[in-house]
Design a protein around this nucleic acid. Structure first.
Length: 594
RNA sequence: GGGGUCGUAGUUCAACCGGUUAGAGCACCGGCCUGUCACGCCGGAAGUUGCGGGUUCGAAUCCCGUCGACCCCGCCA
């Protein structure tokens, strides 16, 4: 056994250069690869800083070379040696350390590695299941190290930016009061108060508002949030927000601060210059032109309203939709060539998933428009449609006729689907856009009541407040979303800072005064003690980093993510706990059939 | 809660319409090889075909159930 002290590394595996030639070094790292040529042995030693080639020469030290030959992939070793220049024709241009190699004089196996479940390489194609079970190995892969380091740089840029802008980073409780609105809470039982529960925060919303009442003026926090809802590629049960709140501010003030933040993050973490200000779009316009409230403006294929063209087309589906206050809309995919019957059937099946009953496809061919519905159309209607979109041979027009919400959803999703399938989404471009003028409320069919579209503390537009009693659905919110490449990366609002307005909103949401007092009494009280006008926004940090990294799932930028069933394959949580722990909490588990 | 795709060696995949001993790459083990860099060559070991049931002379393959991973709808800002 060697004395530990003598094996402390002098350089990382990314340090040594031509200038270090002749220097004695100690390196430590993982055996990424070893090439035993029968005599000379090469080992690629890797750490998070880089890769250095180490050479063992049996003619110089037979015993050492024999030990090197026995090294397995991913064991951890320390190597003493001398930096040497590689022969000119052996220089590797693609490696920062490609001009040198370390000629080993001694080797210490710090820890062996058993047979690996997968190769530690960027192009490894291990399943998500295996990767998550051995996440610590997955994280050794250079691409994952890159993602985690990018996330670090984004976080550091955020902190630096806000600090310079005189924001205060304040931690808020992880154990808080469960509230009825919004997502399902993760609950934490209280041992001291038996039968009572804390909730993990869905967001620090109420706390940051109280910090405004406290006079902190400009607050931010990079904070974990928890929502017990079903998962998606862009949703984990715990995720990270960049949380922001400001006093004496309006929408433009928030937007300006956020645009500055985005520009700083992209410049410093990704080396990308994002032009400000970002374009802005109304909610209604987004829904009409892009089919959803998170428009991807990196490509065209914009949706057009067609009601006035097809109101008396002769095609019953169109005519009935128009006369029944429905929406007929469409968009074109240029130069896709002729679509097969099967392709059209598959696309029709796809939009049925969004509630649409059917899809009309009109294809422009050399000899003219072609579609099964042409025979039903009055003369001139087909030409009006193809003219509207300036269609050329090879283009296809997709039309949906349904209730406006269904038409929007079907075409919005179809637009994304086709853009991706036909490679119409440009790589490496970032197109931010603000979406404004959201409705304040959403009608919940299941519960037969209005719910807050953003959250119940969002302020209505002053000029719309009077309609809260008469026509709540038409009231607009002082809310704003920041959408990046079709993904919502931030959302916020100007809040209610007067108790009477907040009270009015609660009653519109069907929350009676007694319930409001029980659930939000602390906030209502605070609003009576000189609460300043305030508003804020929260970023989804995971989503933002995912986009910058060019990944498709937020799991790729989270060190230890969970599966779609909210299970951690590595440490196998959640798990059963001891009877004794439950007894202390006064909790009994209901028997379920085995 | 619903829909879709998938589950075969440590791992990534193959195995035709149900057919005889379930194959291959990488990893692992052994041998050869002195300038490789995903080194090369030769050999070896390695399988509860996720699990349970059914159909059949015969099931990785067909059917039912179940568990798990991923994507989507609902849900969630």
């Amino acid at each position: 056994m060697a004395n530990n002290q003598s094996w402390i590394r002098s350089h990382t595996c990314g340090d040594a250069r031509r200038d270090d030639s002749g220097a004695s070094v100690v390196l430590a790292g993982w055996v990424m690869n070893h090439r035993d040529l029968g005599g000379v042995i090469f080992i690629d030693l890797r750490d998070r800083y880089g890769i250095t080639q180490v050479v063992f020469r049996p003619e110089e030290n037979r015993e050492l070379a024999e030990r090197a030959a026995r090294l397995r992939m991913e064991s951890v070793v320390a190597v003493k040696g001398t930096v040497g220049l590689r022969p000119a024709d052996m220089v590797r241009g693609d490696l920062a350390t490609g001009e040198i190699e370390v000629v080993a004089t001694d080797l210490e196996l710090l820890n062996d590695c058993r047979e690996l479940p997968f190769m530690i390489r960027d192009d490894n194609d291990a399943s998500d299941e295996t990767r998550l079970k051995y996440r610590y190995l997955d994280l050794r892969r250079p691409v994952m190290q890159k993602n985690i380091l990018l996330r670090h740089r984004v976080s550091q840029t955020v902190r630096r930016y806000f600090d310079h802008q005189r924001f205060v980073e304040i931690e808020t409780p992880m154990l808080m009061k469960s509230t009825p609105e919004g997502a399902r809470d993760y609950l934490v039982p209280s041992r001291i108060h038996k039968g009572c529960f804390y909730a993990l925060p869905q967001s620090p919303q109420t706390y940051k508002q109280l910090l405004m009442v406290a006079g902190f003026d400009r607050y931010f926090q990079i904070v974990k949030c928890f929502r017990d809802e079903d998962l998606r590629a862009d949703r984990q049960p715990e995720f990270t927000q960049i949380d922001v709140e400001m006093s004496f501010i309006d929408e433009d003030g928030i937007i300006q601060v956020v645009e500055g933040l985005m520009a700083a993050v992209f410049r410093e973490a990704a080396g990308i210059d994002l032009p400000v200000p970002f374009p802005r779009m109304g909610y209604d316009e987004a829904l009409l032109r892009y089919g959803n409230d998170s428009p991807d403006i990196r490509y065209g294929m914009e949706i057009e309203p067609l009601n006035e063209l097809v109101g008396r087309s002769g095609f019953k589906v169109f005519d009935d939709t128009v006369s029944g206050n429905g929406a007929v809309r469409g968009f074109t995919l240029e130069q896709c060539g002729p679509l097969s019957r099967k392709q059209v059937d598959d696309l029709t099946e796809y939009i049925r998933g969004f509630g649409a009953k059917g899809l009309v496809v009109i294809q422009m061919k050399e000899e003219g428009a072609s579609s099964p519905i042409l025979k039903f159309l009055q003369p001139g209607v087909a030409e009006a449609l193809t003219d509207r979109f300036s269609m050329r041979p090879g283009d296809a027009l997709f039309i949906v006729a349904d209730r406006p919400a269904v038409t929007a959803a079907a075409l919005g999703n179809l637009r994304r689907h086709l853009a991706a399938a036909f490679g119409r989404i440009p790589d490496g471009t970032f197109a931010p856009v603000w979406v404004l003028d959201f409705p304040l409320l959403d009608w919940d069919e299941a519960e037969q009541r209005y719910t807050a579209m953003h959250h119940p503390f969002t302020s209505p537009k002053p000029e719309d407040i009077s309609r809260l009693a008469t026509d709540p659905g038409s009231v607009r919110a002082r809310a704003y979303d920041l959408v990046l490449n079709g993904s919502e990366v931030a959302g916020g609002s100007i809040r209610n800072y007067r108790r009477d307005v907040q009270q009015l909103l609660f009653s519109t949401l069907g929350i009676d005064a007694e319930t409001a007092e029980r659930k939000f009494g602390f906030l209502m009280r605070a609003l009576e003690f000189g609460a300043p006008p305030h508003g804020g926004i929260a970023f989804g940090l995971d989503r933002l980093v995912t986009l910058i990294a060019g990944e498709t799932s937020i799991r790729e930028v989270i060190a230890f993510p969970k599966t779609t069933s909210a299970f951690s394959l590595m440490d196998e949580s959640p798990s059963k706990v001891d009877e004794k722990q439950l007894d202390e909490l006064g909790i009994t588990i209901l028997k379920t059939e085995e």
